[in-house]
Design a protein around this nucleic acid. Sequence first.
DNA 1: CGTCGCTTTGACACCTCTCAAGGGGGGTGG
DNA 2: CCACCCCCCTTGAGAGGTGTCAAAGCGACG
Lengths: 239, 239
Amino acid sequence: MIEKYLMKLRARDSIDAIEEAAIRDSITDVVHYPAGTTFIRAGEPLHYSTLIIRGLICRYKDMSDGQRQITALHVPGDFADLHSFTLKHLDHNVMTLSPCTIAKSPHDRIQKICEEFPRLARLFWFSTNLDACIHREWEVSLGRRNATERTAHLLCELHVRLAMVGLTDGDSYELPITQTELAECVGLTSVHVNRVLRDLREAGLVEFRGGRVTIQNLAGLRRAAEFDPDYLYLGLRER
Amino acid sequence: MIEKYLMKLRARDSIDAIEEAAIRDSITDVVHYPAGTTFIRAGEPLHYSTLIIRGLICRYKDMSDGQRQITALHVPGDFADLHSFTLKHLDHNVMTLSPCTIAKSPHDRIQKICEEFPRLARLFWFSTNLDACIHREWEVSLGRRNATERTAHLLCELHVRLAMVGLTDGDSYELPITQTELAECVGLTSVHVNRVLRDLREAGLVEFRGGRVTIQNLAGLRRAAEFDPDYLYLGLRER
DNA sequence: CGTCGCTTTGACACCTCTCAAGGGGGGTGG
DNA sequence: CCACCCCCCTTGAGAGGTGTCAAAGCGACG
């Protein structure tokens, strides 16, 4: 159930059996949502956080003119909204992009884990800080990279993040979103994203069709994006 | 010395005398840097965090072609890099934009505070999550707002954040940065920022000259930016 | 009083958006 | 089982916002 979450924790830190049990015990509900379900809205008081078991989730903000900016994507094994533990309510909405299975972890149980297992508290904190690292890299993309670089960069990031939880098949992975949603991540219009994807395909770098990304030339794609995965803090952390 | 930090904490939570003393005792060094000093570089191991006493600090990333994106601004009373406590090294550089006075708080002392004062630990965590809220709002600006809206939005944000620590004079505040640095925040060129500032000035909304921002029409500026300060979590937090 | 960094302005280029139209695939109802 | 519909993808043409390049103004400082 929460295997992917543990996989991700253990990629960076050792977790013993007692800590693992504490995390498992924190989950009270497992829920399924269809694609396109906004299950958390900005401003509403929250009393649990959401661990993704299966599916793709985004955080987004809407503008008054109907435009939307997706500020984060979350894959299985991610907490989509662990930051609500300290914030109490969120500044953005949270929505499923594909059919999802999620586990709810009430804040009072997270609180107890933090008290009993300071090391886990630190890991939780680390995990929200890692989200911020990704936000910063997206700021760089949105502020300084052109349309092609931005798109390529996001596809590289997802390749790495999905590989961490065993959801890649070599250089290919499922990405069950529309081009419009992709555009909402990279700050472009869907029309332009479509053109960029065609260029990337014709350059022999990546293909994105039918909800699946197939990287044909990983080195070339990373070069086109100037992708450097350091910001994802992949390695084991010294203690 | 750390009065502005306490002011900001107390705007959202109550801090008792013992907690205040613990925070004060965590500071080992107070250092001055001239403007333009990059005092933390991406990747280097860190053993302390930086509380800003005076001056303006930014976090930034450089691109291979010489472009730069500033991903965050920090004002007095902010921890510029509290996230390094969990990350161990940063994914970005940290630089002074003006002459600065900073206080160093070693990680082992922060660790001790977290153990002895779980409530402060939660506040520290909250504060890094608040940084992430600001990152998200910047993503929205960079991805979906045009040049004028972006610039106006940033000036509104700084007005609120500086007011929180008593560094505004009505609707005016010091912002000791160049137009080039402003451009590096909002993902534009300095030439275009210059034109935007002229437009905002001629529209009677704000003036930015000689390192000082003077808002002539706060309501109008906020309307132009569609600025909603909710993402700054200004209110007292229920416990 | 000269230099250097920052600001300001203009002309033009180019990237991305807008608007519009058509194609394709999957689901639903007759 | 077929027809229709709706959503998503695809492409083109033209518009517009922002970048690039270049030059001049201005102020602080030595």
